[in-house]
Design a protein around this nucleic acid. Structure first.
Length: 194
DNA sequence: TGCAAACCATAAC
DNA sequence: GTTATGGTTTGCA
């Protein structure tokens, strides 16, 4: 049984779908109905679920972490994610994306290089990211450092990145899957908007 | 700048 | 199997 919980914090709705052990999918947004629809569209079909009005204590803990990521305060929360049912390439791309540190962004192409495959395939997987904002797909932008797309809207993507600004100045190389992933200071993106 | 062609895993038929 | 579909990239005028 999958249990779905939502909570509104500072007028943004956060939601998770949980089994006893793992997070099946998560989402957030201004409109509660949209967020719930999003959650429902991503739970594996033929799986029974139930929507709860009041989050349990452990659900509230997860929702609080989502909020803190949304606020640009927390990174790499190490929550148990249910990825077993996802295609293996999808898992690889999500794992690579999760390696982007707070304060940095990378590009669809760079992720493609580090996980194999092509940039468009990466974009497709970002678009279907079941674990927003835990898997930081908002930190993935186009090769010219314009935003690209975002499920929650480009305005939200920009706001998230703004809050994650840590004024780093140098490019960082991250090891993931035995490959190198280039990460660029989030300022590379933000300076296009000033 | 702007456009066209190459690109590549998924999901849907 | 086959096709359609992008949150892309690159090259070239």
């Amino acid at each position: 049984m999958i249990e779905i919980y939502t909570q509104i914090l500072d007028s943004t709705c956060f939601a998770v779908a949980l089994t006893q052990q793992q997070i099946v999918t998560s989402s957030f947004g201004a409109n509660q109905q949209t967020v719930i629809n999003n959650i429902l569209s991503k739970i594996p079909c033929n799986t029974p679920f139930q929507v709860f009005c009041e989050p349990t204590l452990s659900a509230r803990n997860v929702l609080t972490v989502l909020k803190s990521i949304y606020d640009g305060k927390e990174d790499n929360p190490n929550l148990p994610l249910a990825t077993a049912h996802l295609p293996s390439y999808t898992k690889k791309v999500l794992k690579t994306t999760a390696a982007i540190p707070l304060g940095y962004v990378t590009t669809y192409g760079a992720i493609a290089k580090a996980s194999g495959g092509g940039p468009r395939a990466v974009g497709n997987i970002m678009a279907g990211n079941p674990f927003a904002p835990i898997i930081p797909c908002h930190r993935v932008v186009k090769s010219d450092f314009t935003l690209g797309g975002y499920g929650g809207g480009l305005k939200v993507k920009l706001e998230l990145l703004s809050r994650e600004s840590r004024s780093f100045e140098t490019i960082k190389h991250i090891q993931v899957n035995g490959e190198q992933l280039e990460a660029f200071p989030v300022e590379y993106v933000l300076r296009n908007f000033t």
